[in-house]
């Protein structure tokens, strides 16, 4: 069972439908007990960083997400959800994030269109079970802020938008995708499927103990 964390922001319906299409059970929930009991959790997010952190605090889910990350079970942040995993963002003022991964979130700056919106190509760095069997093709981005991770080892994939832009991050059980895998056609679905397989493996290991 995969928990799609509902803190009031994010395209929950599309994410949960995508998970179901891949053969897993998805539960859109804001209930701490349900989330902590899940085999894997997805933190979606659309909107502004500060608002999202405020909602996570107000709903009590901030500690739930941290608790889930500590459990060692796979956690995936999507779009704003990925940005929230980091330490801070400069969107509409400086806001603290979940600090599960070191790094910060900054605005795109330059003589080009903002937001970065549309299909862009992935370039993989290093290997990860998340990238298993995935082609370096186009996925769908839509964001005005991007992540600068502190540790190169956490950077699993970038895309090029007038500079290398963080696309996929991962360390241990915590992963993030800046693009929307549920909106990224075949490649997106494969990445999501790989994440879900990690959740299943994690459950199988736990059950065999």
């Amino acid at each position: 069972m995969i928990a799609i964390i509902d803190y009031g922001m994010g395209n929950l319906h599309s994410v949960s439908k995508a998970v179901e299409r891949l053969g897993f059970t998805a539960v859109v929930t804001s209930c701490e007990r349900e989330i902590l009991a899940a085999d894997g959790a997805i933190l979606p997010g659309v909107g502004a960083f500060g608002d999202a952190m405020a909602e996570l605090k107000a709903t009590g889910l901030l500690e739930t997400v941290r608790g889930f990350a500590r459990s060692g079970k796979p956690l995936l942040g999507i779009c704003l959800g990925m940005q929230l995993l980091f330490e801070e963002s400069e969107e509409h003022g400086v806001h603290q994030g979940l600090a599960l991964l070191p790094g910060r979130v900054v605005r795109f700056r330059g003589p080009f269109k903002i937001p970065h919106m549309g299909w862009n190509r992935l370039k993989f760095h290093g290997s990860s079970p998340l990238l298993q069997g995935v082609e370096e093709g186009h996925v769908y981005f839509v964001h005005s802020y991007h992540v600068l991770p502190d540790h190169p080892a956490d950077l699993l994939a970038t895309t090029d938008y007038h500079q290398p832009v963080t696309a996929i991050v991962g360390r241990g059980n915590v992963f993030g995708m800046q693009f929307h895998p549920e909106k990224s056609g075949v490649i997106g679905m494969k990445l999501l499927k790989n994440f879900l397989s990690l959740c299943r493996e994690s459950r199988n290991i736990a059950n065999s103990r």
Partner: peptide, 11 residues
């Protein structure tokens, strides 16, 4: 919209 969101994987 609900049905479409469940069926397609593009924005």
């Amino acid at each position: 919209v609900k049905r479409t969101a469940g069926e397609i994987s593009i924005p």
